[in-house]
């Protein structure tokens, strides 16, 4: 940082963060920020709050679609493997049963549908969230360790088109936060 004298360039600012003491205050602030025209922002909370992601304009996720695709892929893999093995690659008469004795293939088809679906659900959730991630600038925020305990934060990022150090700070201070501070990028 500049005061240590080694870096001549100014540290870039990631955004302005406001801490709230309650989920309702955070929700109202997020709604107000969206109404005021802010778009590049995120809210941080120790528990999922209904309506919060919608309030900052984030309403759609592909997790369920990807999970469905994963499940269908699993079912197709399971049935395809058994069909290939029993009908094409190793057709062997066992107890006079038909080669394609599909009712017997259902349990494994079902299990693999669930298995692939579960990996798709967790995998797509993590991938779309950009996790795992080693570091994120928001962790530089003051008292941010409370975001996993009892702190509620709203961060308007400097990339937002409407971002203005003074005006945005003033706007956040009007929302009744505990504190507003600047978050540095690193």
């Amino acid at each position: 940082m500049a005061e240590y004298g080694h870096h001549t360039e100014e540290p870039t600012v990631y955004g302005l963060i406001a801490e709230f003491d309650d989920s309702d205050n955070l929700l109202h602030a997020a709604e107000a920020a969206y109404k005021a025209g802010y778009r590049t922002m995120d809210a941080y909370s120790p528990l999922p709050i209904h309506g919060l992601s919608e309030a900052i304009g984030f309403k759609k996720t592909y997790v369920s679609l990807i999970t469905l695709i994963g499940g269908i892929t699993g079912a197709a893999t399971g049935f395809g493997m058994q069909y290939f093995a029993s009908v094409i690659h190793y057709d062997y008469d066992i107890g006079g049963k038909p080669f394609n004795s599909w009712p017997s293939f259902m349990p494994i088809t079902f299990e693999l549908a669930i298995l692939f679906g579960a990996f798709a659900a967790l995998g797509s959730m993590l991938a779309l969230n950009g996790l795992p991630r080693h570091h994120h600038p928001v962790f530089n925020a003051k008292r941010f360790e409370r975001a996993s305990s009892d702190g509620f934060f709203l961060c308007i990022e400097s990339e937002d088109l409407q971002y203005d150090t003074e005006a945005t700070k003033k706007f956040l201070e009007e929302q009744g936060p505990v504190e507003v501070s600047e978050v540095l990028d690193d």
């Binding site: 997020a30 120790p46 900052i56 984030f58 997790v63 659900a121 967790l122 797509s124 959730m125 996790l131």
Partner: peptide
Amino acid sequence: GWRGSAKHWFRYEMAYLL
């Protein structure tokens, strides 16, 4: 690297339910 982002929670709850 979980940080409790509202967007993350949104996807998280969907994945958990699924």
